[in-house]
């Protein structure tokens, strides 16, 4: 293994929300939210659409400041976006190298780049531009970019929701594999219940706007998890129930 790949330093990440509330010109979006993300943890936020999941990520990343409450963060934070997060004027290599901007040593930088390309199975695509790639490949490049160098925390804003179903399934497995290789603290926003059940160490179900955490539970089963694993199905049932989407609730 090369230098940058494995971080021997213990997780330097810290991410906490304390009594955070937020509104957009009078419209209350988040109410009194408390959240402590443990280092190395994979937290998934699910909730009804428009409930403020993305706002929550923006608060965590610092793009938005909360109206009240405290956000504390420590460590290098990077975000994976739903789509269009890559710079279209840069090649695959150049996009990934953005994540290695702090690496001064040129040989190390190139080694790391090669390793990342190998990790996402995109050797041979170094010189391709994003518009020449499929949706899944683009998201893999985004993953490589956020994993590059010494990032600590990954914020993921529905990173796979613009992909077709089968690619989405494959990307979930891919993400698990990448994180096994390069552990990071992850906060993952999705409206996809399957995704939450397959990926999460901890699921937070958000209520309708103004959102607050209405249910929180851990999924202990080891990863990678099959879609049909008991633990996954059980977790899905819990989430559906909480969102009021189970069959009984419909009756």
């Amino acid at each position: 293994m090369f230098a940058g790949a494995m971080k021997d330093k213990p997780f330097a990440s810290r991410l906490t929300l304390e009594k955070v509330s937020h509104d957009y010109s009078g419209l209350a979006v988040l109410r009194n939210l408390n959240l402590v993300v443990q280092p190395g943890e994979f937290v998934v936020l699910v909730g009804p659409s428009g409930c403020g999941k993305t706002t929550l990520l923006n608060l965590l990343s610092g793009h938005v400041l909360p109206v009240s409450g405290k956000v504390e963060r420590e460590g290098v934070i990077r975000t994976v976006y739903q789509y269009d997060g890559l710079f279209p004027w840069l090649t695959v290599s150049e996009n990934i190298l953005m994540g290695l901007r702090d690496e001064q040593d040129k040989t190390r930088r190139n080694q790391e780049l090669a390793a990342l390309l190998e990790l996402i199975y995109l050797q041979g695509f170094e010189k391709h531009y994003p518009h020449q790639l499929s949706g899944g490949m683009k998201q893999r490049v985004e993953l490589a970019r956020v994993l590059a160098g010494d990032s600590d925390i990954l914020l993921m804003d529905e990173p796979f929701s613009a992909l077709d179903y089968q690619t989405r399934l494959r990307m979930r497995a891919e993400l698990v594999r990448l994180l096994e290789n390069r552990p990071r603290t992850v906060v993952f926003v999705t409206h996809d219940i399957e995704e939450a059940a397959q990926l999460a160490d901890r699921v937070l179900v958000l209520s309708n706007r103004p959102a607050t955490i209405c249910r929180e539970f851990k999924i202990e089963a080891p990863k990678p998890r099959e879609l049909a694993d008991d633990a996954v199905i059980h977790a899905m049932k819990l989430i559906l129930q909480e969102l009021g989407l189970n069959a009984h609730a419909a009756l």
């Binding site: 990343s61 976006y81 710079f87 994540g99």
Partner: peptide, 21 residues
């Protein structure tokens, strides 16, 4: 936003993000 995530500022932001965009 991406530029901010990767700390592009000032003239670098102009030359490496705004202009190519």
């Amino acid at each position: 936003r991406v530029a901010k995530d990767y700390h592009y500022k000032g003239s670098e932001l102009l030359n490496k993000v705004t202009l190519p965009a």
